Amino acid sequence: MRLHVLQHVPFEGPARIGDWAGRRGHALATSHLYAGDPPPALEDFDGLVIMGGPMSVHDEAEHSWLGAEKACIENAIAAGRPLIGVCLGAQLIAQALGAAVTKNAEREIGWFPIELTAEAQAEPCCAGLPARFDALHWHGERFDIPAGALHLARSQACDAQAFLYQGRVLGLQCHLESMPGSVAALCEHCADELSPGPFVQTAGEMCAAPPAAFEQVHAVLEQLLDAVMPSGGPA
């Protein structure tokens, strides 16, 4: 399968998603939208991976490429392509599906528990996943669950943590793709967002996460990716 990454800033790349794609034999290309790369044409990819970023889905005046990216996402959904969006990427997908993206009641930055919904626990793609586990979060906005989508997970600070639409479109508010280096990069480049709050950890706390924390979120991520973007798809 030819996967195409839409990247919004240099320091938020596919991380563990890239490792997973390589092991599954998926080709991986990237449009660095912040650097002027255009989104890919529909015929040039089989699935989209849409990463996070510090901007908002509403910031088209500051980031003119957002308009073309939104059209790419809408076209991919309409064409039946599989998609995964992380944080900003999930918000862009939710907006494309008609859901609102608004300010969250609290900023959620750090390792905090998420729990699967009852609907998710009955969904085959979530079979065997832990009902509750810690994940990395870094967001001040949130998406509503799109109409017709399955609500997969919630946290104390944000009820809408994940959704699945038509079994092929996955939105993740949290960062299951994170690796130690990508967490450190977020802490370096977005340090201005680390003012105290009830759901805001320090950079030291985030970077001190043990290997087991990453292993758990990566196992969850890869099970979901295998369900949404199975090997042996179009090439």
Rank of each mutant, 00 (worst) to 15 (best):
A15W: 12
A15H: 12
R16E: 12
I17Y: 12
G18I: 12
G18Q: 12
D19T: 15
W20P: 13
W20R: 03
A21H: 04
A21Q: 07
G22A: 15
G22T: 06
R23Q: 14
R24E: 06
R24M: 11
R24L: 01
G25R: 04
G25C: 07
G25P: 13
G25I: 02
H26R: 02
H26F: 04
A27Q: 12
A27K: 04
A27T: 08
A27Y: 03
L28R: 06
A29I: 14
A29D: 15
A29S: 15
T30F: 09
T30M: 05
S31N: 01
S31W: 05
S31P: 03
H32D: 14
H32G: 05
L33A: 11
L33H: 01
Y34A: 11
Y34I: 09
A35G: 10
A35K: 09
G36C: 09
G36H: 10
G36E: 08
D37T: 07
D37L: 02
P38R: 09
P38I: 02
P39A: 08
P39S: 03
P39F: 01
P40Y: 00
P40T: 00
A41S: 15
A41V: 11
A41T: 09
A41C: 10
E43L: 05
E43H: 14
E43A: 13
D44W: 00
D44I: 01
D44F: 01
D44A: 13
F45P: 01
F45S: 00
F45H: 09
D46R: 01
D46K: 00
D46A: 02
G47F: 03
G47R: 10
G47W: 05
L48A: 05
L48G: 13
V49Q: 11
V49T: 13
I50D: 07
I50P: 10
G52D: 11
G53H: 07
G53L: 06
P54Y: 03
P54I: 06
M55F: 02
M55I: 11
